[in-house]
């Protein structure tokens, strides 16, 4: 039994350390770059604050190379591509963010690629890549290329839907805290939010409006199903009947006494 305990503990430690390793990969790029002058160390510091760092996406995901071998880290033979040229950036990011690429390519932004139009890093940043949010759409940033009116109109529409998605998320959390099975809903919401943010790049929000209404309907259905037999109306009836019964028995007893 003791032996089993030790094995379980060892397994626990192993699993924990593996989980840690997945979140913070030890990559030689960082070890080397962090000790260099600002020009070369700054990207590391910026990356550390990024959503990529948060999810364990290392330097090699964009720059290629071998992050585990310091001698071959920047070898073209190991896929090192250095700083990507601007026109290659959408395809590079699209390697992971599949859904976004098509929307971007078809959009006004994508059609001006190589002609001074914006690439992914123009709005999202290159190393300090932040989680996609409406804060990325700012009058100041958009005004550097064109007048911000259209972007602002889209932002306000998106804000409305984002607020709705947040409200749905909050409601799902509440349902989960009451024991309602929300796995499917959470997955759908996650998928919808991703699609929603991706579709922004196409500037077509009609589809998003339809999809968010679908999930709202599904949520209401689940909310109702979870409460079968324990809704407030049933509660009022049950408590009411018990109180009426108590009153009746009291009146009979009083009459008898």
């Amino acid at each position: 039994m003791r032996c089993l305990g030790v094995i379980l503990l060892a397994l626990g430690i192993l699993i924990t350390s593996q989980a840690d390793a997945a979140v913070k990969p030890v990559i030689v790029c960082i070890q080397c770059h962090i000790a260099q002058p600002t020009k070369f160390s700054q990207p590391v510091k910026l990356w550390e604050t990024s959503i990529h760092a948060e999810h364990g996406v290392g330097c090699n995901a964009c720059h290629g190379g071998d992050p585990m071998d310091s001698a071959q880290a920047m070898s073209p033979a190991r896929g090192f591509r250095g700083v990507p040229i601007p026109t290659a950036i959408p395809a590079l990011c699209g390697g992971c963010h599949v859904g976004v690429t098509k929307h971007y390519t078809d959009s006004a932004h994508g059609r001006t690629l190589g002609k001074g139009g914006p690439t992914c890093v123009t709005c999202h940043g290159s190393h300090d890549i932040q989680k996609a949010s409406l804060d990325l759409i700012s009058k100041k940033k958009c005004s550097t290329c064109h007048t911000p009116e259209k972007a602002w109109l889209i932002r306000s529409t998106m804000l409305k839907r984002d607020t709705m998605l947040n409200a749905i998320e909050k409601k799902i959390k509440t349902l989960r805290s009451q024991g309602v099975e929300t796995d499917q809903l959470e997955k759908r919401l996650f998928s919808l939010r991703n699609r929603f943010h991706a579709m922004f790049h196409s500037l077509d929000i009609k589809l998003i409006l339809q999809e968010s209404e679908h999930i709202q309907a599904a949520l209401e259905k689940t909310s109702g199903a979870g409460g079968v037999g324990t809704g407030p109306l049933t509660g009022v009836v049950a408590v009411g009947w018990a109180l009426i019964a108590a009153l009746l028995f009291y009146l009979i007893k009083k009459n008898l006494d």
Binding site: G231, G235, A242, A245, A246, I252, K253
Partner: peptide
């Protein structure tokens, strides 16, 4: 009858928590 009164009141109290404050 006194037992039934108490049982009914208990059920009303019990159901209040079941339906309105289960958490």
């Amino acid at each position: 009858l006194q037992d039934l009164i108490s049982i009914s009141l208990y059920l009303a109290f019990f159901m209040t928590f079941v339906f309105f404050f289960p958490n």
